[in-house]
Design a protein around this nucleic acid. Structure first.
Lengths: 133, 133
DNA sequence: CATAATCTACTACTTTGGTAATACTACCTA
DNA sequence: TAGGTAGTATTACCAAAGTAGTAGATTATG
C-alpha cells in the first residue's frame, strides 16, 4: 500500500460515485458498478461503461480482463482522493485554513451534539499526540 | 443584506477567483477584475469579459452600466457561496459528517498547534451555545 | 478631424463530464 | 444451429468552463 500521493483534485459526481463503488468492492465489472450505482435513476449500462473507459484513460481506474469481461479497480486509494479533494476546496475557499472551514460549518449549519463531541475528541487527541512529539 | 440562501454549489476556478475579486472590491469593472485577477499568467481582457457575461447569465453576478462601462457585482454573498461549496464537498465525500472531514484533515495534514487551538475554542464555543439553547 | 484607446457583442474552439444509441462480437442455450 | 444475452468499441450529443480573436461602437486626444 504505497503512499501513492498525488491523484486527482477534482472528480465529477458520477466519477466519484463510481470510485466509491470500486473502493467498496475492491474490483467490479461494469454491470456490478451499474447495479451498485443506481439510486432512483438507473444509468444505462453503456453510460457506466463509457465513463469507466474515460476514467481509465485519465488514469483513475485500471482494468484487467477475465475472459472477455473487464474487471475494474480504482487506481487511487480512497483516503488519497478524499485528501486531495478536500485540500483543493480548503485551498480555493479558505486559503488553506482548516479552522476557517470548520468555523464556517459551525456557524452555518446545525451540527449535532454528537458531532461536536466527536470533534472535540479529535482535536484533543491530535493536540496530545502533537505535544509529545 | 437578505439571507439570500441557495446559490451555486460548484464554481470553476476562474469563476471563484472572479467572485473573490468582486467580494473584495464590492463592485468592479472588467479591467479592474482583470487586474486584480492576474497572478503570473494574465488573462486576456476579453476572457474576463466573456466569463463575466457567462456568469451573469448564470445569475452569479449582475451589472449596472455607468456610461458605456459595465460595473459588476456579486449576486451572492461570500459566506453563502462558501457554505454551499463546502457543504457540497462534505456531502459528496463524507456523507455530510463534518467530523469525518476534520478527522481526515487532522490525520493527513500537519495542522499547526495554533490551528488546533483555534479549532478547540471553536468547538467549545459551539457546544456552549448549543447547551443553553 | 483623425486616430488610437476602450468597451461591449459575437463567434469560435477545446476540454471534460455526463448520457446513451449503435454496432459488432462472443457465448450460452433451447 | 439459430437466436438471445452480455460485453466491448465506436460514435454522437449536450452543457459548462475556460480562453480568446474579431467586429463594431464610442470616447478621448493630439
Amino acid at each position: 500500500m504505497e503512499t501513492d500521493c498525488v491523484g486527482p483534485r477534482k472528480l465529477g459526481d458520477l466519477q466519484l460515485k463510481i470510485m466509491k463503488v470500486l473502493w467498496a468492492r475492491g474490483r467490479a465489472t461494469v454491470s456490478e458498478v451499474q447495479q451498485d450505482l443506481d439510486g432512483a435513476k438507473a444509468l444505462a449500462y453503456t453510460t457506466v461503461a463509457t465513463m469507466l473507459r474515460k476514467m481509465e484513460s485519465r488514469g483513475l481506474v485500471r482494468h484487467l480482463s477475465e475472459g472477455r469481461t473487464f474487471i475494474y479497480e480504482a487506481a487511487y486509494e480512497e483516503s488519497s482522493v478524499s485528501k486531495n479533494m478536500a485540500d483543493d476546496l480548503v485551498e480555493r475557499l479558505f486559503e488553506g485554513r482548516l479552522s476557517s472551514l470548520v468555523s464556517h460549518f459551525l456557524s452555518t449549519r446545525d451540527v449535532s451534539e454528537e458531532e461536536l463531541d466527536r470533534l472535540e475528541k479529535l482535536v484533543r487527541k491530535s493536540k496530545r499526540s502533537k505535544g509529545k512529539q
